[in-house]
Amino acid sequence: MNRSTLKDLLEKYRTPFEEEKDFVPEFIVLTGDPKAFLRERKEGHFTASAWIVNKTRTHALLTHHKKLNRWLQLGGHADGNENLMEVAMTEAKEESGLISLKLVDSLIFDIDKHLIPANKKEKQHFHYDVRFLVEAAMDESLTVSEESKDLAWVAFDAVPDVVGNNKSILRMLEKTSKSEYAL
């Protein structure tokens, strides 16, 4: 995958969720920015995430993000890598220690534009997050990274209680139960 492939995937991307539809044109335009995959693009840049589920689609793997102090999907910055699928898989492995990760589909699973609050190192900015659906075995041991406070397999019915009103995670949860992604 490169920025041209990403642009093609975004142009073909379809979603029934209005908030996600609103993001698509911005994501497409961003693919043309030379700094789109770099943190140095201060107004916002691409990131990639893995929505990790178990094979029977009953649990999702979430990380308690240290800086944001919230339960989230695993993922991170592209740091110049235009292959966001590769970024998502690399980040998932680094942040979980899992080896058994399996990409379910090479198509984009979800997109989300969200504001990252200012901190000591950077001003507030947007993450344009491209997400992929990934499977993993729940019996494999987890390794908490320096970026996390904790990792947990969370039962689908408990995810709303854990993530609160995080619409993007609730959206991915809903998508996971749809027939095209269910077993």
Rank of each mutant, 00 (worst) to 15 (best):
K55A: 05
L173C: 10
E146G: 10
T143S: 12
K123E: 15
P160C: 06
G80Q: 03
T90R: 14
V144C: 11
E146Y: 02
M138H: 01
L115D: 05
D112T: 11
N83H: 08
V159T: 07
N119G: 13
A118Q: 09
T56R: 13
K149D: 15
F132W: 12
W153D: 14
K102R: 10
E94A: 12
E91N: 06
I169S: 02
S179A: 14
D110R: 06
R171N: 15
N119S: 13
K67N: 10
K67E: 13
G80H: 00
L107C: 03
I52R: 06
D110F: 00
D129P: 01
V159F: 04
E147M: 08
K167Q: 10
D112V: 09
I116C: 08
H125K: 14
F156M: 10
D161L: 11
A92L: 04
V163W: 03
A136G: 15
S106F: 03
L72P: 01
E146M: 02
A152P: 01
E82N: 06
G97V: 04
V154N: 08
D112W: 06
A152W: 01
D161V: 02
S96G: 09
S145Q: 08
V134C: 12
I111F: 04
V163P: 08
I116R: 07
D105F: 00
A155E: 15
L142Y: 07
G164S: 10
L61Q: 07
H114T: 07
M172L: 01
G97N: 08
R57E: 04
T176V: 15
D105M: 01
L170M: 01
H64R: 08
E140C: 01
S145P: 12
K149C: 05
T176Q: 10
N119Q: 02
S179Q: 12
D112K: 01
K93L: 00
N166R: 14
K123R: 13
T63S: 13
K178A: 11
T58R: 09
E86Y: 11
L115R: 12
S168Y: 11
K149S: 10
F156C: 09
L142H: 10
A88F: 04
D150Q: 10
E147K: 14
K55F: 09
W71T: 12
K66I: 09
D129A: 12
A158W: 03
E94K: 13
D161F: 06
K93I: 01
L98G: 12
I108H: 06
E95S: 08
N81L: 13
E140M: 01
H114S: 11
D110G: 00
E82F: 05
R70N: 07
Y128E: 06
S179T: 13
D112C: 11
V130M: 04
V53T: 14
S179P: 04
E91W: 09
A92D: 07
H64F: 14
H59E: 15
A88H: 04
R70G: 00
V134A: 12
F156Q: 07
S106M: 05
I108Y: 05
H59W: 03
L151T: 11
K102D: 03
K167Y: 04
S179K: 15
G97C: 07
M85S: 12
H77A: 15
F126I: 08
Y128R: 08
L68A: 15
T58Q: 12
N54F: 02
G75C: 07
F132Q: 04
S106I: 02
